[in-house]
């Protein structure tokens, strides 16, 4: 559980996220954030529904413009009109299920090379090598020629991760990657993310609702609560459940709070690995 706090690959300064409303004051989701993601580290973004996790992810990825402040990746400012530049610095795995007919895993993963190929989208030999490598890293090589619509949710999520790896970016962001998965698949995906960060030195950020898995996988947690400052800390600091309790239970009644604490009590149980 040691990560080196060197210069972050991705950093935000005075970043304010939210929505601009024409002719009115913007809807601000949280106070200004100064965050950093370093090479080889896994960070989990947690928070109740509506706390702004997806907005933060979309803002970091340049899909949504910030109210103010900047996001930098390796010293380059992320701009929402510089999509190609961003695509070479950051890859994104989203929750939207991809349901295209007759698209093989290899074809999907090859799309990760999009920011590098010419107008025909033809793959060079080195592109092809990267595609195979990416599938190897998430153990999808055997399924390379299968159609995407024939895969299970877990396999599809791995294929999407392979696409992100083929995109060859220093930062990978995943929006609720475990949302449609059963427990064994969730555990295996988390382990894969951790290994990837260690082996490839990529910075990985994922949002999740699985508090226990996130705490045991991530090096650090970012905790979001609507309208409040984001909490940034080492994952093992949250094991006592005090902070999680504050963030997640404000809307609950006594009985629900007791159930939540029972759930948090299990955090000390042995790691799922």
């Amino acid at each position: 559980m040691s990560w080196t706090a060197e210069t972050p690959i991705l950093s935000t300064s005075q970043l304010v996220i939210g929505y601009r409303i024409p002719g009115s004051t913007p809807l601000v989701l949280a106070p200004a954030m100064n965050l950093g993601l370093s090479a080889g580290e896994v960070v989990s973004l947690l928070g109740p529904n509506g706390s702004g996790k997806s907005t933060l992810i979309r803002t970091l990825a340049g899909l949504h413009s910030a109210i103010s402040g900047i996001v930098e990746i390796q010293g380059q400012v992320v701009k929402s009109n510089q999509v190609l530049q961003t695509a070479r610095a950051l890859s994104l795995v989203l929750t939207d299920r991809i349901e295209v007919q007759h698209l093989t895993v290899r074809q999907l993963v090859a799309m990760g090379r999009y920011p590098y190929t010419g107008w025909l989208g033809r793959l060079t030999n080195s592109d092809k090598v990267r595609v195979e490598e990416a599938m190897g890293l998430v153990k999808m090589t055997l399924l390379a020629d299968r159609y995407l619509h024939d895969l299970s949710d877990g396999e599809q999520q791995r294929a999407l991760l392979a696409k992100a790896l083929a995109q060859d970016t220093p930062v990978i962001i995943l929006d609720e990657p475990t949302a449609h998965l059963d427990l064994p698949n969730r555990i295996s995906l988390m382990k894969t993310l951790k290994n990837l960060a260690r082996e490839t030195g990529k910075a990985i950020l994922f949002s999740s609702h699985d508090l226990d898995l996130a705490i045991h996988t991530a090096d650090r947690l970012w905790l979001m609560k609507r309208g409040e400052s984001i909490i940034d800390g080492r994952a093992d600091q949250f094991l006592d459940g005090v902070v999680l309790n504050e963030v997640f239970t404000s809307g609950l009644d006594q009985g629900e709070k007791r159930l939540f604490n029972e759930y948090l009590g299990r955090l000390h149980s042995p790691q799922p690995e």
């Binding site: 899909l63 939207d96 799309m111």
Partner: peptide
């Protein structure tokens, strides 16, 4: 081809 994955995925791949 990138649009096949949906608009958000397409944008994340660098499509305007």
């Amino acid at each position: 081809n990138a649009f096949l994955l949906g608009e958000n995925q397409a944008r994340a791949l660098g499509v305007n």
